[in-house]
Design a protein around this nucleic acid. Structure first.
Lengths: 348, 348
DNA sequence: CTGAAAGCGCTAACAC
DNA sequence: GTGTTAGCGCTTTCAG
């Protein structure tokens, strides 16, 4: 049986109130008593019981991360950021993985109504609109990560800007016939990335050939799958000499599929075609994929920060933060005339 | 302010004890009262407060997963299994990522001494021996996942058997000059996998050429890195015609590096050399890597099972479970004479 | 500055 | 069956 404040109080010959004060850094405790209490507590390896404390204080000292469990690297990295922020603060992280959108409601209701957690980090999913209101009334703060809703704090990546820069990277290499291999256009990120692509093309006064902008129609993972990349790239390849010389792909996972299709067709990057992806997942390194990096770890840290700040100040205006993805230059995108150069080298 | 049992009791015109009984499925409550209570509770969206309940019952209804935060896919997948098991049981999962071994002690002490969790899932790390005793005395059950200690329940993968089967797969293809690309031999899994490799070779009466068994000397991640795979494979390649025709690589991540080295040398799998990895990480699919799959999700589910069982029965004997990895045949390992076949095809 | 006492919301032992 | 009561371990007035 672990010691309680009563044990400490008795041994230190003080009242339990004093022990409590010591452990809450209450100013009005004389230096001597404080030290005496601390000494005893230390000797007995006393630790305040979080649940008792939570009950009395009406706080739980833990937050919950609601994340979709189908993806991996992205969330793991963010969680790491969250954790690193939390670890110093005596705040626990409760993991709540949801596989199906339906589970979201259930989980939220379950935990929130029970005051189980002080705050929630909600990842990459649409908040059921039926919940928005409930949440705003209820006192549990929620911050959206990789998602947006005007009524909640949110952090997200500037998809449009990222796509814009990715496309510009391609343009800078001298490409004209640039295509985009997109995910399901129903999804927000897919739409935003398309917008960025368009903007870059328009600013460069380059024509956007509708035949070179293809998107997935798969509902699964909104088309952010290797399969969709593979299939769509095959369609591009089928275009023969009408194929674009460069393609901005809306995600690394799709780029991976695209690269496979390219490989099977005997085509190489960047000699035959240039590719820029989006995300910078682990795989991108292996593939040597040039891509736009989402600052995942940093997002995790900031997400925790924002939530913590809101816990302090529950009714300030929602804060929306945008992260700008960073271009990671690797080997799949290159100059348009590299093909020519390579050809001449071969000839030589 | 959420409703408490007092509110429910008052509205339902019963005592709080009865309300409590209803929510604990206590048998001695008449059907009528039970329904009346439930109706009121439902109307008021009442949920028992987990902390209050925990305090009174001396249980927390949550378990903690202590995982090293440097790897990704492996743990994510296991955690998913754990969660799926837990989700039905009103038991929360607290994530405790540790980046440095030193943090382990601190985290454990922090949470365990505070009775913060009912049980612990301890992943892939050596239990500090100084803790073993403390743990056994303390009441918090702990199960080791992907690790072993005779005093605790444990689940692990049979590395030796896996390596044995991997090597046999290579042997079955007719290879004689088989090498092994291993991680740091100081680590347990590296040693076990080497043992399996040896066993297979000996049983097949194949000579083990010491020059063809190489291991990493890097302390980082025990040599389970892409870099180590890359470098060691270069050494193999430098062997020229003395190079093995097949190599069992101790992890997929190293195999990825090895494949890169091979690619740079203009060598292809399985035509020029056969490779079998170990783990079946996500990347393996992309690479078309033949490998030994660790049943991660299943391990997660069982880990939760075992822990739950021990919570019920704290002092039964430790249970040790071994999972046997499964061969996943993809494209990096093939028949020895495929080279010949390919050569003749080319000739034709 | 410090002790005593009243909860926080719930469970469980004890009466009736 | 059901109400009552005494905690679970801690925080927080309220006196002094």
């Amino acid at each position: 049986m672990p010691p309680t404040i009563y044990d400490i109080a008795r041994e230190a010959k003080v009242g339990i109130g004093t022990v409590s004060r010591v452990f809450n850094d209450h100013p009005s405790v004389s230096k001597e008593t404080r030290e005496r209490v601390l000494r005893v507590a230390n000797r007995l390896s006393y630790r305040p019981h979080p649940y008792a404390r939570g009950l009395a204080r009406k706080r739980t000292n833990s937050i919950m991360a609601v994340i979709p469990f189908f993806t991996t690297f992205f969330f793991m990295e963010i969680l790491q950021g969250v954790q690193s922020k939390l670890s110093g603060l005596d705040c626990d992280l409760i993991l709540c993985g949801v596989n199906h959108p339906d589970q979201v409601e259930e989980s939220l209701r379950h935990h929130v109504l029970r005051n189980r957690v002080d705050g929630i980090l909600f990842f990459s999913m649409r908040m059921p609109e039926t919940f928005v209101e409930q949440f705003l009334n209820h006192r549990t703060p929620l911050v959206l990560v990789d998602a947006y809703h005007k009524s909640f704090d949110s952090l997200a990546v500037d998809n449009q800007q990222g796509a814009y820069e990715a496309t510009n990277h391609l343009i800078a290499f001298g490409h004209h016939r640039i295509g985009m291999l997109n995910a399901n256009i129903e999804s927000i990120p897919a739409r935003e990335r398309l917008r960025g692509f368009r903007k870059a093309m328009e600013e460069a006064a380059l024509p956007i050939d509708a035949a070179l902008v293809k998107n997935s129609s798969s509902p699964r993972l909104d088309g952010f799958t290797r399969e969709s990349g593979y299939e769509i790239m095959q369609q591009f390849i089928a275009l023969g000499k009408k194929m674009p010389t460069a393609i901005f792909v809306s995600s690394d996972i799709q780029a991976a599929g695209a690269l496979t299709a390219l490989g099977e067709a005997g085509l190489k990057c960047p000699d035959d075609i240039s590719i820029v992806g989006f995300d910078d997942i682990e795989l991108a390194t292996h593939l040597g994929l040039t891509t736009m990096r989402q600052p995942m770890y940093e997002m995790g840290v900031l997400a925790a920060d924002v939530l913590l700040a809101r816990l302090e100040e529950p009714k300030r205006e929602p804060v929306h933060t945008m992260f700008v993805p960073k271009l990671i230059v690797r080997k799949t995108a290159g100059s348009l005339d590299s093909r020519i150069r390579v050809a001449s080298e071969t000839a030589a």
